[in-house]
Structures are given as C-alpha cells and as structure tokens.
Design a binder for these strands. Structure first.
Lengths: 221, 221
DNA sequence: TGTTAATTGTACCATCTAGTTCATTTGGTC
DNA sequence: GACCAAATGAACTAGATGGTACAATTAACA
C-alpha cells in the first residue's frame, strides 16, 4: 500500500483518524480496572486484561495512572466517594430514633447486597492490610461521618427513653456493618459449606429482616 | 576444589549426607505455605518464596503437592479440619441453653480473634468464589455439624421458654459468625477509616461482650 | 549385597507480566 | 499554517514465575 510507504518502517502507524477524549478514556479505564480488580484482586489482576476490556490501550493506563497500584488506588477512591455520596443522602435527623435506625440498617444491608463489587474490593484491600487506603489523601479525610450520624440518632433515642444508654456509636456501626457485610463477603463459602445461597431473594429478605431486628434489639431499653 | 571433580559436571551434586523425613518435609512445606498464602493470597503468593521459607526445596513442593493450587488446597483442608476439631470439643449439650449459647458465641469470637490466619484464608478463598472448597473432597463432607449444635441448643431454649420461637438455626450461626468475623477480616480498613484498632485488648474485650450480648438479645423471648 | 522404588538437589526453561521506547497524531494558539 | 504540548498506537524488554529435566541419594527388602 502507498500508505505504509509514507511512514517509518515498523513503528507507530495508525489506522486513519481518531478523536481525543481524555476524560472518556479515563472513565473507560477505571470501569475496566474495577471489573478486573473485583474479579481477581490486586495481585491476580492483569494489566493486559484490563487493557483488553478497554476501548483503548495499555499505554493509556500507564499514561493516566502511572502504574498498576496507582490505577488500583484510583478505583478505590472512586468507590469510597460513591458510597459517601449515598450516605450523605440519608436524612436520618428528621426521623424518630427507631425509624432512623431501621432505615440506616436497612440501607446498609441493601447497599452491600446490591454492590458485591464494593464488598469484594474492601476484602481485597483488607487482604493488603489497607495500605492503599492509608496512602490515599482523598480517602483519609472522608469517613467519620457515618459514626457521627449514628451517634446523633442513638443519643436522641436514649434521651427519649427508647434506647438503653452506655453503647458506643462505633459498636453500633460495627454491628450493622458486620451483619450487612458478612453474608456478601462470605457468600461463596457459606454456599459451599451449608448449601445455602445467601444471594437468593427469599434468603435476602429473611436475612435483612433478621439483621434489622438484631440491631434494634441490641439498642432497645 | 577436589570435591567438585568427584562429581559429574554441572548436575545434582549434594553436600555430603542427609536423612529422609517425608512427613516432616510435608509439614514443613505446609507451614511455610500457610504463612505465604495468608500474607499474600493465592495469586500473590510466590512458590519460590514458600520454598525459601522451607528447610527443603521447590522441587519438593511439586513432588508432594503437584502444583501451586494443590498446595493451597492442602493448606485449606488442614485448616478446616483443625477448626472442626475444636468445634467438636465443645460440649454444649450438657449446659443450660443460655450458658451454652454464651459459650458458643464466646468461643467463636475468641477463635476468630486468636486465629486471624484462619480469617484471612477464608477471605482469600471467598475472593476466589470458594472454588477450592468446592473441589476438595475432604471438606465437602465436613461442616454441617455447627448448625446442628446450634439447633439443639436453640430448641432446648425454646422449650424452656427462654428463647423466642421461629428463628432459623442458620440465622443464629450467621449472626454469631458475622460478629466474630467482621472485626478481624476488616480490621485494617476499620483502623484506617475510624482510627480504631480492633486488635487492641480493651477493644477486643468490649467487642466480645457486645457480640455475646447481641446474640442473646436476638434470641431471648 | 544387589535391586528397586521413594525422595531429593541443581540447573534450567517457556511463558507471562509490569512497565517502556519511540514515533505519531491531535487540538489549540499565534 | 506553523508550532507545541497533550494524547495515543504498536512493538519491545527485562525480570519474575510456575513448573520441569535429569541425575543422584536413600531406605527397604529379597
């Protein structure tokens, strides 16, 4: 072809024409990376595989994110910012204590059940001792609000004589999170060992009710 | 050196003398492998690193376990058999319902807290969708006993009017496990996000009491 | 003691993988 | 339209990694 002649032998020729879209490329890469990290963890993920899931090339991954860990960190940050947004949208302060706590426990349960990707990434990050959370400036200043929200509701409940006093807000949070997290994070082993699929609709409904009930019983005076 | 001359060039020479110990070698490899898998997961673990932690060589790993996954499966199996042994040693049937449930919840909490290696391996296995649990014959026939133990205690408690009826034994197990598992599995991220170290003695004591209390409140009539 | 099967040591390799090199194209600015 | 910085494509590489080849040694036993 005459085209090939117009180009130095064996290097960077391009098909015909293309348009730039840096932000689109970034988002595209992040989405592909999230899938791969969620599926295979940090060590198990393959940069080439991420590139293949992308509309662009491996070259771009390194151009925008530096290295594999940088990409992973970016995925983590985006994920935490997303959940933060949801949390803020809950307006617990305008509800009576019991209703507020029910809503929070239910929301937390549902969010985990509907976002196993989130749960898996948190697992992966914990396997790595959360060292990427530690080095991320964006996440460091982010997450104390959940505890504050709980404390506010809890104290109103105590003042109204609905909740018993003396419970730490962190303990409430841990209980709610544990019940929401566990049957997503350990779904696979639960299925293997007990033969029950916690992802099945009936199982979810029952477990959801049990979780909320457990939280309320823990709090009630 | 004269020593080198007494041996065919470039192949398998040995220092001087050594004795065989197949079982010892096996155990040695399993222990080293457990450390490495616990620390780095299945994909992150390096066979060369496992070999280095061993008194023997990489050659032996492949001789005894076939491949990396075979070794990983062997580690998993050993771990599950160990916890099974502990479970069996609990004599819940001879205790009154409330005391039995308190003991079980406390034991479960302590076992997780004292064996973060176990927790991490279960996390790793769940990241891999528990596919190695699925292909292990030894584990398949193992683990329904925990549920049966709980059911027995629960039904005695219901009969005695101590527990409310209508709860599934699986739900009790999931609640106990979730509370025990979560603050070990997510210890790193909890520390990063909330600045609390759930491994610290005071935190453990408080969390343990909260977990047991939560389980009992969930059950009480 | 001679033979054989189970073990073990050393060196090696094929392949995979994160990251790079180098040239090229695009979009904006003057 | 000339020039420059940002963005992109294709091929390449150094090193890591799972796994093997081959020979040697040991234990058991006839």
């Amino acid at each position: 072809m005459s085209k090939a002649a117009s180009v130095p032998k064996g290097t960077g020729r391009k098909p015909a024409s293309w348009t730039q879209d840096p932000e689109g490329v970034r988002r595209d890469i992040l989405a592909a990376a999230k899938e791969e990290f969620v599926e295979n963890g940090l060590s198990g993920a393959r940069v080439d595989e991420i590139a293949a899931r992308t509309a662009t090339s491996k070259r771009m991954i390194y151009y925008y994110f530096g290295d594999k860990e940088g990409l992973y960190r970016a995925v983590l940050e985006e994920m935490y910012e997303r959940i933060r947004g949801f949390e803020r949208s809950l307006d617990l302060a305008s509800l009576p204590p019991v209703e507020a706590m029910t809503l929070l426990a239910g929301f937390t349960f549902d969010y985990h059940a509907e976002n196993p990707d989130f749960v898996r990434l948190v697992m992966v990050e914990n396997i790595h001792h959360a060292r990427h959370l530690a080095t991320s400036d964006r996440i460091a200043t982010l997450n104390l609000s959940a505890i504050d929200m709980i404390r506010e509701v809890y104290e109103r409940g105590v003042a109204a004589g609905l909740f018993r006093p003396g419970i730490e807000a962190l303990d409430i949070h841990l209980t709610i999170s544990a019940l929401a997290f566990y049957n997503v994070s350990n779904r696979a082993s639960i299925r293997q060992v007990f033969g029950h699929d916690m992802g099945a609709p009936e199982a979810l409904v029952r477990r959801r009710a049990a979780a909320i009930d457990t939280v309320l019983r823990m709090l009630r005076a």
